[in-house]
Amino acid sequence: MKSVLNYFNIYRNFVSCSLTEELSFRLNFFLLLVVDAIFTLSALGTTFILFDHIPALGNWNRDQLQFFLVFMLIIDDFQGLVLSSNFWMLSTDLKAGNLDFTFLKPIHSFLPMFFRYLRPSSVISLVIDIALLFYFADKLHFTYVDYIALPFLLFLSVCLRFILEMAIALLMFWTTEGVGINFIRLQLQSLSRWPDLIYRGIAKKVLMTLLPVLLVGSAPMHFLFDHSKWHYILWLIVAVVVFAFILHLSWEKARIRYESASS
């Protein structure tokens, strides 16, 4: 219990520092909001234009695709809020040898390595995207069961996204130059922002199993749009557990691999 409280206090300080830092550069804070707004508008705009010319994408209509997009935007917001900045810092810290200090701290290194820097501006786009999610859920006539399942599904998707991205980020311990690895993460995010129904063949199989980035958004949608497809949720849970285990193993290997750049 004391240990949990200790971790909680450390994280509270991380939040406080990040908030102070971000609000010190107000123009930057404002620009981050504008980037998020343009991202949301361009994603929704693309589907608006597309569906002006087609009745459906696979068996999904416009509202279903837009619900999916907003669901993915929320996951992006959570990631932007909690994780994203840390991946870029990890790349720099590995090269500069700053991780020495992280490893020496009497806490699990994951906390300062992946959760040290937050991006509080994402909270604003998160609130807007949650409002949009409810708007599209209402258009799709969601039942109470759907509304109750939604936070649980969102939690599972966020967990899978976080675990996958942290596992990929650990590859930086092998490559040392981490910017390329960060770009791999970004490309996998781009792939997952479209539903699995647009992909075919080996690509789809790989992106649903070996590197299940498509499960993050598509699995909850398949269940919400058709409750008989509950196996997708089971698949999502299995993926979370399996990749959490892979992350644990990768971390053990990465730690051994680490060579201090400062020594």
């Binding site: 910017v179 390329g180 792939l191 647009i198 690509a203």
Partner: peptide, 28 residues
């Protein structure tokens, strides 16, 4: 000198973007 990085930073994103668009329009 940093060929892998060059591929991941410059060529990779263009190829992934192309793959997404081909997949999308093939499904449309």
């Amino acid at each position: 000198a940093y060929r892998l990085n060059f591929f991941l930073l410059i060529i990779g994103p263009a190829l992934v973007f192309y793959f997404i668009k081909v997949s999308l329009w093939s499904a449309v």
